[in-house]
Design a protein around this nucleic acid. Sequence first.
RNA 1: GGUCCGGUAGCUCAGUUGAAUAGAGCAACAGCCUUCUAAGCUGUGGGUCAUUGGUUUGAAUCCAAUCCGGAUCACCA
Length: 602
Amino acid sequence: MQPKYFSIMSVVQQIKKNTAKAIASLYHIELAEENILINATKPEFEGDYTIVLFAFVKQLKKNPEQLGNELGEYLIKENASLFTAYNVIKGFLNVTLSNSYWLNFLSTNYNNTNFGIKQNTNEKVMVEYSSPNTNKPLHLGHLRNNFLGWSIAEILKANGNEIVKTCVVNDRGIHICKSMVAWKLFGNNETPQTTHKKGDHLVGDYYVKFNDVYKKEVEEIIATGKTKEQAEKEAPIMLAAQQMLVDWETGKPDVIELWKQMNSWVYKGFDETYKKIGSNFDKIYYESKTYLLGKDLVKQGLEKNVFYKKEDNSVWIDLTKDGLDEKVVQRKDGTSVYITQDIGLAEQRQKEYNAKQSIYVVGDEQNYHFKVLKLICQKLDLPSADGIYHLSYGMVELPTGKMKSREGTVVDADDLITEMINIAKHKTEELGKVKDFAEDELAELYNTIGLGALKFFLLRVDPKKKMIFNPEESIDFHGFTGPFIQYTHARIKSILRKITDNKQQIENSTFSHLFPLEKKLIIELETFPAIITEAATEHDPSKLAIYTFTIAQTFNSFYSQHSISNAENEEKKQLRLQLAVLTAQVLKTGMNLLGINVPERM
RNA sequence: GGUCCGGUAGCUCAGUUGAAUAGAGCAACAGCCUUCUAAGCUGUGGGUCAUUGGUUUGAAUCCAAUCCGGAUCACCA
């Protein structure tokens, strides 16, 4: 049996194909299928799908009504197994598809656990996400990044791509030295063990400490009559951090020792958080090892005249013809800048993995940077260039404005996760439906629901848009939320468990009556494979979040109106069982693609 | 200042390859659990789609201008 993977043509494609064929045969005009607009028919009209005629009215020199009628007649005559009725209103041709078509779709797919998942194409895609700094713990913004990265990787996998998940850890630089200096000055040899604090939080505290001290020092210097600019340059703690960076680069043993020590605390803390949110990577790059990459490419670029050297020995690229600016790629002292290492890393990854596409999940504040990066790689003729895709997402802000870790005004990832799990616990206890669960089962359930709520909350909006998180109004568990969908899944599973004689097979597929809500659910379920494709091509998990919500909503309406176990007759019962099984399957797959688990009971 | 992104119901957001009377959720109000999980369902109210002009049979969607908000334009990362 072949339908392991979904490969049947979608309804919409079939309608397009038939419409094109009809027009070719009736009017001898060839229309490209992609130019035919098919919409779901609005509920106030009769029909399943609507062919919008306006687009080719002019070309065919027909009035819409007449064209609609001729097309409708033709479709029904030539393909009676698919089309059973039509009506024309203004320029809209509404067609009704045969119930046997829908029933056939349902019975061939309901028990396919791979429904919606495409055949593997072996096309490799790299997804870089998370990419934390080792000077502070993860916060809400990192969570959006992680969830997006994970989800887009899963979605691409479902579309047949081979995925390499990667993370670039920013473990060196002046900001890392800041926490190191502060710890050295004020830390009294504190460790995660002595303070019982997660290592990333401990280090983060010293990053904040650095900035507090720095601010105070600057104020003191200004009070002596110097300008702000001077003060910022002269503050002793800043000078100490800069010296430490120099010492790090020259490999001074005690600095390296401290650096390794503090980073190891951070990694341990990160691992804990990653484990909680279910994130992992196939390959981790450390900037301390890659920051020197790209120097050879600078040399090559000079030879190719892509770059040019100024009198002071700095190396530049002129992007003014591309509407951008001049950009430095190597400092006058010969050291490389941020973008240089990115170019180098892009090349190295290409050598190591040879991926067709490389997706960078990075905030929209770096839109310009990635535009430049791609352009430079293209001008250097690097094989990785065209595959560079910046999956840009908006910042998560608080009602009070931007989060700033320097000022300690961030929503901490660990705290938020703990809070969400606690809320899940309280709500679950209030409802009292799982009193027979063992303790570890309960813990797992709270985890699933709490994280489900959080992930769904962050993934349900278009990644491009910035979002506002209000800590006062905690994340909801009703309506357009993760728990609502998880609940619907658990509800279905509960029904299925109770029906013992579930042979789940309609013997009589010519059974032709469908209630509106039965049909609506089937029609919506049928679009699942297309939604997965759309989410992948648009790099947008929110498409799936919205879709799974719609399915859950429709199922619940259906459920409240039609009984499954006490259906009017055996055929209806079997039909509804199939519907329930496929709905649960789609909800599960859809949520998994968002990185969210669905419980069997809740 | 240049470039880019955004402005849709009280709030959070869909809808933006042009298409029927602009949709959800939350909040508010009114109903529904002797029947498969009420974290649910049904209904009501709520809109100058920032503004103005243009293109079109048709504009929230495309074009122009304006207003508001944000990002970015570092030999920072």
